[in-house]
Simulated assay, not measured.
Amino acid sequence: MTLTKARIIDEIQSQLNFSKKETTDIVENLLEIMKRTMETGDDVLISGFGKFCVKDKKKRRGRNPATGDDMMLSPRRVVTFKCSGKLREKVNNG
């Protein structure tokens, strides 16, 4: 089952006994801080969880999979995630 923002809000609300509005505001603010940070090109490191890294991709040659035609892919930014050792261990050992 996928963990959604709504489920995160419900879990935090039930564990910390905050109101639904307070919990929603906290989660929304956290996500907004993360988005603003990555928008500027900075990484987001959450100890014990992992690191969201912003990487710049250069212009490169690619291929249209539908037609097979060559094309140039424009430069862009991508976000990658590298999990921490603790998270990796927890995922692998259940």
Results as ranks from 00 to 15, higher is better:
Arg63Lys: 12
Lys57Pro: 04
Ile9Cys: 03
Arg77Gly: 07
Val44Met: 04
Leu30Phe: 15
Asn17His: 10
Leu31Gly: 05
Leu3Phe: 11
Lys86Gly: 03
Lys5His: 09
Gln13Ile: 04
Phe81Val: 13
Gln15Phe: 06
Ser14Lys: 15
Met72Tyr: 08
Cys53Asn: 13
Leu31Val: 09
Val44Tyr: 06
Arg7Tyr: 07
Asn29Leu: 13
Lys90Phe: 11
Thr80Trp: 10
Val27Asp: 03
Met71Glu: 10
Lys90Ser: 13
Asn92Val: 05
Glu39His: 13
Glu28Ala: 11
Glu39Arg: 11
Leu87Gln: 03
Phe81His: 07
Arg77Asp: 03
Met72Glu: 14
Asn92Pro: 01
Gly48Ala: 05
Arg88Cys: 05
Asn29Glu: 15
Leu87Asp: 01
Phe52Ile: 07
Phe81Met: 06
Asn93Gly: 02
Leu45Met: 12
Val91His: 03
Glu22Ala: 13
Thr23Tyr: 03
Val91Ala: 12
Asn92Glu: 10
Ile8Met: 09
Asn29Pro: 00
Ile8Ser: 01
Phe52Cys: 04
Ser74His: 10
Lys59Asn: 13
Asn29Tyr: 11
Phe18Thr: 02
Arg36Phe: 04
Pro65Ala: 06
Asn92Gln: 13
Met71Gln: 09
Met34Cys: 12
Lys55His: 08
Phe18Pro: 00
Ser74Asp: 15
Thr67Ala: 09
Ile46Ala: 04
Lys20Gln: 11
Gln15Ile: 06
Glu32Asn: 14
Cys53Met: 14
Phe49Arg: 13
Asp70Cys: 09
Asp56Gln: 12
Cys53Phe: 09
Lys58Leu: 06
Thr37Trp: 08
Arg7Asn: 12
Arg76Val: 07
Arg7Trp: 05
Ser74Glu: 14
Arg61Ile: 09
Arg7Thr: 06
Met38Glu: 00
Asn17Ile: 01
Ala6Glu: 11
Arg76Ala: 14
Met1Ala: 11
Phe81Pro: 06
Arg61Phe: 08
Gly41His: 10
Leu73Ser: 12
Arg77His: 14
Met1Tyr: 12
Asn64Leu: 06
Phe49Ile: 05
Thr23Trp: 03
Met71Asn: 03
Gln13Phe: 05
Thr40Pro: 02
Pro75Arg: 01
Ile26Cys: 06
Ile12Lys: 02
Arg60Trp: 02
Thr2Cys: 01
Thr24Lys: 02
Lys59Val: 11
Phe52His: 04
Lys90Met: 08
Ser19Lys: 06
Arg61Met: 12
Ser19Pro: 02
Asp42Met: 11
Thr23Met: 07
Arg63Cys: 08
Leu87Phe: 15
Ser19Trp: 07
Gly68Asp: 14
Asn29Arg: 10
Lys59Asp: 06
Asp56Ile: 08
